[in-house]
Nucleic acid binder design. Structure first.
Length: 505
RNA sequence: GGCCCGUUCGUCUAGGGGUUAGGACGCGUCCCUUUCACGGACGAAACACGGGUUCGAUUCCCGUACGGGCUACCA
C-alpha cells in the first residue's frame, strides 16, 4: 500500500527565506496538493549560534504571501505532531533516543575530541597530502572516542560530564546505493562519507539526525530538498538502515539549484540586480534591507509561476499557470536535473501577463495610493480610464506613474527630436487653428476631439498627431492620443496647448 | 584537490536513434496604425568536444572539457 503523501518544508531560521527556498517549498506544496496529501512546515533550529531574530516569522509570512501555506506546522496551527520546532522537540528526548539506539546497535559512538584536536587532525592529514581530511573509519582509530578508548575510560569520561558528540560509524568501504526520484540511482562509496556528528556536545542533534528522526515521527513520505543535500544523502541512508527503516524511509527528491543569471553559483542576496527575497527582508546583521518581490511590484501569482517554471515544465507550451493548475499536473518526473539560471527579464514578462489579467478597476485601486504619494488625486472613474489607457505599456503597477505622469504634470520642455523635425510654420498654424477649434467644443470626448482635428485638417491640411502629443505632454510617446486628451479634460488640454503655443512662438 | 551531480538557441525549456530540432523571454525586420502602444507575421539564434555502438547519433556508452554542489559539533 502506498503511504499517504506527507511532505515538509524544513528551513532553518538563519535569515530571510530566499527564492530558492521558496521554490523548494512550492514543489513540496504542489506535490502534496496533487496527491491530496499534507504539507508541513518544520523549523530546523538546531544551531543556536546561527539563529536570526525574525527569520521564522518571515518564512511564515512569505509562504502566506505566495499562496502556498502549509496545512500543518509552525505558524499554521500546528497539528498532530506538534511541536514543529526542533529546538522544542529536543526536550522530549526523542533525538537522544534514536542516537542511543544507534549506539546500542554498534552503529554510532561517542567522540570526545576537542575542536583543537579535530583541527590538528585535519592539519596533519593535509600535511600528509590526504585528499579529503575527514573523521572516518581510518582516522577515528587515532582519535579519542569510544571505539579507541578502554571501556572503563569511556564510562569515566561520560560520568564526569566530559563533553562529547555522538558520531555515525560509517563502514570503511561499502557501496551505498540509493534512488532519487529526479536523478535515478546514485552510487557512492562509504569511504567518501565521514563519520557525521549526529548529536552535538550541547545535546542538540545535527541536521543529519534531526531531520531523519522527525521525518520518521511525522510520517513523511517524500523528502524533497535542494541539490546541496545530495552529497550527504548516503549518510542519511545509512542512518535509516541502522535504524532498521531503510525500506520505510521517505523517497528522496533532490531539486536542481537556481543559479545566478550572470556569472556563476547559487543566487546570492548581495549585489543582486533583482530581488532574491519574496518579501523585503531586514536582516539584523545588515545595515540596509533587501527589497522583496512584493515590494518590487510583483504579484505573488507571477512570482510563484516564475519559480515553478525554473526546473519544472508541464510538457507542453503552456507557461501561465495558477497554483491550482500546476498542482493538478505537477510531477517530479518533469523536474529537470540541471540548475536553472534565473532570468530577470522573463520574470518581468510574467508579471506583465498577470497585470493584464487584472481589471481596470483593480489596477486603479492599486495605483491610487502611488499617485497620491506623488501628490495627485483623481476620482475613481478617472483612474479607471487612466489605467485602461496606460495598462498596455506597463509591467508593474508602479510603472503607471512612469508611463503616465505627463498626464498629471504639465510639460516643462518638449521632446527635442520631434520638435526639430516637425515644428514649422505650417504645423504651427495647424496647432493654432486646432487650439481655437478645441476651445470652441462644447462636448468633450474622444469623438468630438477627433472631429475637431479632422475639421482643422479640412482647412489646414494634414495634421500631425505626434506633434500635438508633444505640445500637450512634452513626451513623444504615450497612450492613445485622443482618448488621453478626452480623459485630461478640456480645460487642462486647452490650457496646456495655449501655454505651449505661447512659449514656442 | 577529492567525491557527487549536471551540459539542447544569450536565458528558461520541448523533444528524442532517421525531425526543416518545437515553444517562451530578449533581440531584429515587416504589417496594422494620421500618434503611442497592443497585436500579427517573419527572422537571426542551440544539440560542449572527442571516441565508440549503429546502416544512421543531438538522442545510447566511454572519455575530455566546462558548469554546479559538497567537502563543519551549519543547515
Amino acid at each position: 500500500m502506498e503511504k499517504r503523501v506527507r511532505v515538509r518544508f524544513a528551513p532553518s531560521p538563519t535569515g530571510g527565506l530566499h527564492m530558492g527556498g521558496v521554490r523548494t517549498a512550492l514543489f513540496n506544496y504542489l506535490f502534496a496538493k496533487r496527491h491530496n496529501g499534507d504539507f508541513i512546515l518544520r523549523i530546523e533550529d538546531t544551531d543556536q549560534t546561527r539563529f536570526v531574530e525574525g527569520a521564522e516569522q518571515y518564512i511564515v509570512e512569505a509562504l502566506k504571501w505566495c499562496g502556498i501555506a502549509p496545512n500543518e506546522g509552525v505558524g499554521f496551527g500546528d497539528g498532530p505532531h506538534a511541536p514543529y520546532r526542533q529546538s522544542e522537540r529536543k526536550d522530549s528526548g526523542i533525538y537522544r533516543k534514536y542516537a542511543d539506539q544507534l549506539i546500542a546497535g554498534g552503529h554510532a559512538y561517542y567522540a570526545f575530541d576537542t575542536s583543537d584536536e579535530l583541527e590538528s587532525m585535519r592539519k596533519r592529514l593535509e600535511a600528509a597530502k590526504v585528499a579529503a581530511p575527514q573523521y572516518n573509519a581510518v582516522t577515528r582509530q587515532s582519535m579519542r572516542n569510544s571505539l579507541t578508548l578502554p571501556e572503563d575510560e569511556v564510562k569515566r569520561l561520560l560520568d564526569s560530564g566530559e563533553k562529547y558528540v555522538i558520531r555515525l560509524k560509517v563502514p570503511r568501504n561499502e557501496e551505498i546505493r540509493f534512488h532519487d526520484i529526479i536523478r535515478g540511482w546514485v552510487v557512492v562509496n562509504s569511504s567518501q562519507v565521514d563519520d557525521k556528528v549526529l548529536l552535538k556536545s550541547d545535546g542538540m542533534p545535527t541536521y543529519h539526525l534531526a531531520h531523519i528522526v522527525d521525518d520518521i515521527e511525522m510520517q513523511i513520505s517524500h523528502a524533497v530538498r535542494g541539490e546541496e543535500w545530495l552529497p550527504s544523502a548516503p549518510a542519511h541512508i545509512l542512518v535509516y538502515r541502522y535504524l532498521g527503516l531503510e525500506n520505510d524511509m521517505p523517497k528522496l527528491a533532490h531539486l536542481p539549484l537556481i543559479l545566478n543569471p550572470d556569472g556563476n553559483g547559487k543566487i546570492s542576496k548581495r549585489e543582486s540586480r533583482f530581488p532574491v527575497f519574496p518579501l523585503s527582508w531586514t536582516d539584523p546583521r545588515e545595515s540596509a534591507p533587501f527589497v522583496g518581490y512584493k515590494e518590487a511590484g510583483y504579484y505573488p501569482e507571477a512570482f510563484v509561476n516564475i519559480l515553478a517554471l525554473l526546473g519544472w515544465n508541464p510538457g507542453n507550451n503552456q507557461e501561465l499557470f495558477t497554483v491550482d493548475e500546476m498542482a493538478a499536473i505537477f510531477d517530479f518526473e518533469r523536474v529537470n536535473k540541471s540548475g536553472a539560471k534565473f532570468d530577470p527579464e522573463k520574470a518581468k514578462w510574467f508579471n506583465q501577463q498577470y497585470l493584464r489579467k487584472k481589471s481596470d478597476a483593480e489596477l486603479a485601486e492599486a495605483f491610487a495610493p502611488i499617485l497620491k504619494e506623488k501628490g495627485f488625486e483623481r476620482d475613481n472613474a478617472y483612474l479607471i480610464e487612466f489605467c485602461r489607457l496606460v495598462k498596455e505599456k506597463v509591467q508593474f503597477v508602479h510603472e503607471f506613474w512612469d508611463h503616465g505622469k505627463y498626464i498629471f504634470i504639465r510639460p516643462e520642455n518638449f521632446d527635442e527630436k520631434v520638435m526639430t523635425k516637425k515644428w514649422n510654420d505650417t504645423s504651427k498654424a495647424f496647432m493654432h487653428a486646432l487650439a481655437a477649434q478645441l476651445n470652441a467644443l462644447v462636448a468633450w470626448n474622444t469623438a468630438t476631439i477627433t472631429e475637431a482635428f479632422h475639421a482643422v485638417e479640412a482647412t489646414n491640411g494634414k495634421g500631425d498627431m505626434q506633434l500635438l502629443r508633444v505640445l500637450v505632454t512634452g513626451a513623444a510617446g504615450g497612450p492613445q492620443l485622443f482618448d488621453m486628451l478626452a480623459l485630461m479634460g478640456k480645460d487642462e488640454v486647452t490650457t496646456r496647448l495655449n501655454e505651449a503655443l505661447n512659449q514656442l512662438k
